[in-house]
Design a protein around this nucleic acid. Structure first.
Length: 491
DNA sequence: GTTCTAGAAC
DNA sequence: GTTCTAGAAC
């Protein structure tokens, strides 16, 4: 149980020792990223005062609550293109950590660490107490009643999952995550469209301003017209004049085509057969279609930029449909997702709109990085076949060995193929009938005949209960459950 | 709470 | 060979 208390204390430890992970700090609280974010943006505002959880708050803590909310607003304001309405702010009633922490989490819930139904229920049931609710309870009652363990367990395991952005309901985490991915993808498109439109609007404003400047400076007769406004600005006096142009003035257009009641001369008549070149709006509209069409939202793309972009024409979410139906053996009895299957679920991405950089995505540990551990790099993936890809890479557990000493268990310095061979030798050692009999009959023999390959640090040590008592001859798993129900104690 | 992984189960 | 589970470690 000691390791659980260590884990519970990890937040305080991080607060005290890992100052570099703190984003905003005050004398009463600090803002840091959640270690396992359940959405694209997930922050913790950790209280510095030794308060274990929200149910220990009293009325005198209302100023502390307000201060934590101030920090929450500060960190939300730092996130571009997201407003406070996109965030949930509050406390977990069944918090695991032993220090009061306010969660600030974006409502997309698109994250690698979002893996369990209980993760969803922690934020979308009575397990989550919003800041407003906590404030109201402290003001009215002066305290916050804790949830019973039974009630918390019941709320955690609710399987009716209601989308937090629409009326969609499902009973499987798989469908919910596929659905949430659509919401996230749409929002990313909206943000991208907004950025592009802002950029285009800015360019249009600048070009209109230039046009107005040129119209004020342009001579009245076509014979004196000069083709480029930049040439006029080469004269310093002209340049000064352009700086005092008022937006309200409507000067005669520099383009003869745009002047009302203008009769073109011979030269202009000849030009009329040429393409219409001087229409800035049209020019930039075409530019926008060429440059930004792939990024437009389907609805905006249809009305503003001409034909629908490719992702709006076909079944854009066709690649996602495979996630709609839960596949067999993807979920276990606890409705959690197997790690490997989960990565398979995340792997396919639309080629039309690559996802935005994930600020929380963990970078691989480059010390142990090799081509076998790089499932997302397509160039490396091409080089890996099923046959030469080991299921796991042994970690360098034998660093204590002196250099030059050839240890049979030291697979960290070997090639992967050699590591595979070393792994294949393990069952042969286990099948030694004498050794197996010794393990079953006398635990002390284990100390006398240790596994030589793993002599320095055995990966698994059978417990004394396995070789003692009435479960001696039962199979191992049954003996484990009967003699050592630690799992039940943890839960 | 989380990840990782050996061994069991399929 | 693949998936699940339990235990260890953080």
């Amino acid at each position: 149980m000691e390791h659980i208390s260590v884990a519970r204390h990890a937040l305080v430890k991080r607060l005290e020792n890992n100052k570099d992970t703190i984003l905003i700090e005050s004398d009463r609280a600090a803002v840091m990223k959640d270690r396992y974010p359940k959405a694209q943006y997930h922050f913790l505002i950790v209280c510095k005062e030794d308060i274990a959880n929200v149910s220990l708050l009293k009325q005198e803590h209302i100023p502390l609550l307000d201060h934590m909310m101030d920090l929450a607003n500060q960190i939300i304001e730092q996130q571009n293109h997201l407003s406070s309405s996109n965030f949930l702010v509050g406390f977990k009633m069944d918090a695991f950590m032993d220090r009061l922490s306010m969660h600030v989490i974006s409502n997309d819930f698109y994250s690698v660490s979002f893996k369990k139904v209980s993760h969803w229920n922690s934020f979308h049931s009575d397990l989550f107490l919003t800041y407003q609710a906590a404030y109201a309870l402290l003001r009215s009652q002066g305290c916050i009643e804790p949830l019973s363990k039974e009630k918390a367990l019941e709320l955690r395991s609710v399987t009716t999952l209601q989308c937090n952005q629409c009326e969609f309901k499902t009973s499987t985490l798989f469908e919910l995550k596929g659905h949430l991915y659509k919401h996230w993808n749409d929002r990313e498109h909206d943000i991208e469209v907004k950025k592009q439109l802002e950029k285009i609007t800015q360019m249009l404003d600048e070009s209109k301003l230039d046009e107005q400047e040129s119209n004020v400076e342009s001579p009245k007769s076509p014979e004196d017209s000069k083709p480029h406004s930049t040439q006029w600005r080469s004269n310093p006096s002209d340049q000064n004049q352009t700086n005092v142009i008022s937006r309200e003035t409507k000067p005669t257009s520099a383009n003869w085509r745009q002047r009302p009641n203008h009769v073109p001369n011979d030269c202009e008549q000849q030009q009329s057969t040429l393409p219409y070149e001087n229409h800035f709006e049209r020019h930039f509209q075409n530019y926008a279609i060429r440059q930004h069409q792939p990024y437009l939202h389907p609805l905006l793309g249809q009305s503003l930029m001409g034909p629908s972009p490719p992702f709006a024409q076909g079944n854009y979410y066709q690649s996602l449909n495979q996630f709609q139906q839960p596949q067999p053996r993807m979920l276990n009895a606890n409705n959690t997702i197997n790690q490997q299957n989960y990565m398979r679920f995340l792997a396919p991405q639309s080629t039309e709109s690559p996802p935005r950089f994930n600020p929380f995505k963990q970078t691989p540990n480059m010390a142990n990085f090799n081509r076998y551990q790089c499932p997302v790099n397509p160039t490396n993936r091409q080089n890996v076949t099923i046959h030469d890809k080991p299921r796991w890479i042994p970690k360098p557990q034998y660093k204590q060995n002196q250099p030059g000493v050839d240890s049979p268990g030291n697979s960290s310095n070997k090639l992967p193929s050699e590591a595979n061979e070393a792994k294949q030798t393990k069952p042969q050692q286990k099948q030694n009938p004498n050794a197996k009999a010794d393990i079953c009959n006398n635990s002390t023999v284990l100390k006398e005949q240790p596994n030589k390959a793993n002599q320095n640090k055995p990966k698994w040590k059978p417990k004394a209960q396995h070789s003692q008592g009435p479960n001696n001859n039962l199979n191992k798993s049954a003996g484990n459950k009967a003699a050592n129900p630690t799992k039940l104690q943890h839960k």
